[in-house]
Nucleic acid binder design. Structure first.
Lengths: 359, 359
DNA sequence: CCCCCATGTGAGCCCGGTCTCAACCCTAGC
DNA sequence: GCTAGGGTTGAGACCGGGCTCACATGGGGG
């Protein structure tokens, strides 16, 4: 009722102490439950705190404990359900241990990521979970790591950075699924990724993401194991917004020797690719086969349901958070990190390749 | 190179001052760009800061400015793309003004929400954006509002709470879409929502969410305008996990006088409902019609594509963040708040009702 | 030539907690 | 009776940056 004065002042330990007729030190002890406090004093202090509805200022507390009970999470795009789910795993786990999460989106921009890391450090987060936009430009992460601040990488590794990394064994599943496509008779396999790149993909291109590079390696290996040449012309990067993805898809499917399968690197890309295929009036898998990373519920609802590479995204979020919390609490890694495996789930979107010309 | 000592000490203004041979006050002025500082001193201080790679401790700064440049966002479920997208709108907007976001998930639990709000206040966030789990139990929000701390409600209103609210005009679109369903001959219209409730829905039930209650009101109105009785038995709450949703769906479609349309209250429910319909071997819209809230990309990829109620989710996130930032900066509301309108998008999942028996 | 005031500077308080330290009380042991 | 030692207690130092205040310097106006 008496609170429309502009300068709101919070109740502090000093206020509680005064109300309880004890020194600030005693009040702090009673509230913080440490040191020696007589029953009498404790009661008076707690009663006064209750009465004034005292709440400790976590900022002040963080200042001299050096612990903020907050972790920073830096991801490319929270709108992408892949990260949405991982974030859920992280926040759930963090919350259980009394930690909060500051979430920063980078739009997969390197500069934004560097900023984000800096700002989070300035806010004195207790640790960082980062899904690095680049696996090569990693000075900012390197310096975090060297400073000894807890750091866990999610989804992608960073070259030459020994930080704990939670990711799936991508090369393996990529190899396996490519073999499956090859066995189905496909040779013109297209791969579309959001990854930013200055120039179109060529045989000697070094991609800037461990995740994508592993996927490509798996594909290379599958082709070369069968003595086949890898179709470099069908790897498309820079698939940013819906429009560019649709454009890319049209190109891939209308070129002289078109792709017979499209592999979408994530769920967002998949949606645009499928839209484009629909617009072109093509049907899956008769006209073109389709494979995507991540198993979202909607992939079971299309006609046909989609063949996907399922990744334990939520569990990886949980694991990343646990690893970070362990580091924060100074505990050593408990044995070996669990390896996360992706699974190829056969549904109906991969069919035999159309037999047109077999050179 | 010389940094493996356990107790990491950050560089402070005092360190910079010492290195630049000036007082702490002068260093602070030079760094903070305020007060009077000679060019000579400024240069020396900035050089020293650079040299030592000084970074201000935001915690300390927050302590006496009272500003943390952090806002708290409390939502029911970040995994739900509805909130994922809204969160994206919030973080994008906050970032532009130099604010960070602490994200808390409540799982739509009232107790978790109360905790979350308290913790965020303890961390001295500059303001809160909350999608309240309940529109009736709002003491915690009420006290935030009364304390004068900036607060914006998202998606749902809270009874008797004058806090700024960013939400769509739900009653209107619900009315409109129900009329559409009635005009298509449907009478048995089922509505499924996640909303928690102690008892099954009955005619006199007061639902605990402004959002759901408006939707139901719109439906009531449409029925009564046509002089028809509203089928209360087809309103199902507590549709929490995938299993319970599938069970509910089976019940609704197998009862003696089954539902001829199912309206899914959000995208997560929709996925489970569609899965159940698929499992039952029913086809849309021949056997049963389907309508859902939120227009996600995948709704265009099913066969048939789904008729949806599109809500400007991202834009609402942006608006909520802008409103909050305005409050934080003490600016008055700029005219009237923009009203957000949902749109009914006709695709293919609503067909004429099966004519079986017309009493 | 003196006063006024703008500019520059450093000492030190403040925010709201945590925690150390020295002093105090009281009782048990000699 | 005296002291050692445990339980209690309050004063006050810190954390790190913001900011006020008192004080010096020096140039311009009267």
């Amino acid at each position: 009722m008496s609170s429309n004065n502009s300068r709101r002042r919070d109740v502090t330990v000093a206020d509680v102490a005064k109300a309880a007729n004890v020194s600030k030190a005693q009040a702090a002890r009673a509230l913080g439950n440490y040191g020696a406090v007589s029953d009498d004093v404790r009661e008076r202090v707690l009663a006064a705190a209750e009465e004034l509805s005292y709440r400790p200022n976590e900022l002040a507390r963080s200042m001299n404990t050096g612990k903020s009970h907050t972790i920073g999470v830096v991801v490319g795009d929270i709108e992408n359900p892949h990260f949405g789910l991982a974030t859920r795993g992280i926040t759930d786990t963090a919350k259980k241990s009394g930690y909060n999460v500051i979430l920063v989106n980078t739009d997969e921009e390197q500069a934004a990521e560097v900023d984000a890391v800096q700002i989070l450090l300035d806010k004195r987060v207790d640790g960082l979970i980062v899904a690095p936009a680049s696996s090569t430009e990693t000075e900012h992460l390197q310096s975090v790591y060297e400073s000894g601040r807890p750091l866990v990488l999610l989804d992608r590794a960073a070259n030459g950075l020994a930080a704990e990394t939670v990711a799936v064994n991508t090369a393996g599943i990529s190899y396996e699924s490519t073999v499956h496509l090859l066995d189905s008779g496909h040779r013109r396999i297209a791969f579309i990724s959001t990854l930013k790149s200055d120039s179109p993909f060529k045989a000697e291109t070094q991609v800037d993401s461990s995740q994508i590079s592993e996927r490509l390696d798996g594909m290379f290996r599958a082709f070369s194991d069968k003595g086949l040449a890898f179709p470099h012309d069908l790897v498309r990067l820079n698939a940013g917004d819906a429009d560019s993805i649709q454009k890319i898809t049209r190109e891939l499917l209308r070129m002289p020797d078109p792709a017979t399968v499209v592999v979408a690197s994530d769920g967002l890309i998949a949606l645009s690719v499928l839209g484009a295929i629909q617009d072109l009036g093509l049907s899956i898998p008769e006209d073109v086969s389709f494979l995507m990373y991540d198993d979202f519920a909607w992939t079971r609802l299309t006609t046909p349901p989609l063949t996907v590479i399922a990744q334990p995204v939520y569990e990886m979020g949980v694991a990343a958070a646990n690893a970070l919390l362990r580091q924060i609490q100074g505990r050593k890694a408990s044995g070996t990190a669990p390896a996360f495996e992706a699974r190829l789930i056969h549904r109906g979107s991969v069919g035999p390749a159309k037999v047109l010309s077999n050179s």
